[in-house]
């Protein structure tokens, strides 16, 4: 199981207009693993996620998910694939006019013909898993940031997806809520057999949940490896990312002055 690819990315280029955002990306995500994609702002990680979700068309290359090449799939194939995918967006992306419960049930109502009792029980199971059961009737505007993320996660897993994508799960959360969410992500992988792709730049979360880590920098894949391999990387860009070296500190003062004033010279 560990060696079967759930997602296979090959020779992937993604452009915005004339600007290349991702260049020649190649790596696999194995079935049943948590792959964390990390990198600084502007590294291309969000674009990679958007491309994997089919929201951005690549300029070249392939992304194979559960055997379907999403770059060349028919609408019918994509629809079928999306039934096996769950996505939790950074801000929650909850419908503001619907209660927490209604948000979570939406996909079940749209994509299945399950009995009403089954839908209600499934919803409550997921609400309980993310510790939101007492708040099922609240509206999104009444939720804290952490609660919105948990509601988004409950919605993402309502159909027990094979692939779960999570954009910045820890961003803006306090350490305790963040750790709880990390534990939940790991539990989902272990008990529900989900393959989980997490995009984040929060180091603590990365090493708490990752089976493997893909590091992006300036639109290129720098390294893919286990947390241990990444921690012992000799690549300067990886080291800088892990040590969170502020950009200002790694630029020589004279060079920096020149960069700031070059147009005036």
């Amino acid at each position: 199981m560990e060696n079967t690819s759930a997602i296979s990315i090959s020779n992937l280029d993604v452009d915005y207009g004339s600007r290349r955002i991702l260049s020649n990306i190649n790596f696999d995500i194995r079935e049943g693993e948590i792959m964390v994609i990390m990198g600084d702002s502007g590294s291309g990680k969000s674009t990679l996620l958007r491309t994997m979700l089919g929201l951005k068309k690549p300029s070249a290359g392939h992304i194979k998910m559960l055997g379907t090449d999403i770059c060349h799939a028919s609408q019918k194939e994509l629809y079928k694939l999306r039934e096996k995918m769950g996505v939790a967006f950074q801000g929650g992306a909850l419908f503001t006019s619907m209660s927490v419960t209604e948000n979570i049930q939406l996909r079940l109502r749209e994509h299945t013909k399950l009995d009403e009792n089954t839908i209600q029980i499934m919803t409550r199971i997921k609400l309980d898993m993310v510790n939101l059961l007492p708040y099922e009737n609240l509206m999104p505007s009444e939720l804290s940031g952490g609660m919105k993320k948990r509601a988004a996660l409950a919605r993402a897993i309502i159909m027990d997806p094979k692939l779960l994508f999570f954009d910045e799960p820890s961003a803006g959360l306090d350490p305790i809520t963040s750790a709880e969410l990390d534990n939940l992500i790991v539990m989902l992988k272990e008990t529900m057999r989900m393959t989980i792709v997490v995009v984040t730049h929060e180091l603590e979360s990365v090493f708490a949940i990752a089976d493997r880590i893909a590091i992006l920098g300036d639109g290129e894949l720098i390294q893919v490896g286990t947390p241990e391999e990444i921690k012992s990387s000799t690549d300067e860009r990886v080291i800088n990312l892990l040590n969170r070296t502020p950009r200002e500190n790694i630029v020589d003062g004279d060079v920096h002055l020149q960069r700031l004033t070059r147009d005036n010279q």
Binding site: T112, L114, T118, I121, R193
Partner: peptide, 13 residues
């Protein structure tokens, strides 16, 4: 070998 939450919901009902 595997049961998802819809199966669990049937057991609960």
């Amino acid at each position: 070998s595997y049961i998802d939450s819809s199966g669990i919901a049937s057991l609960v009902e």
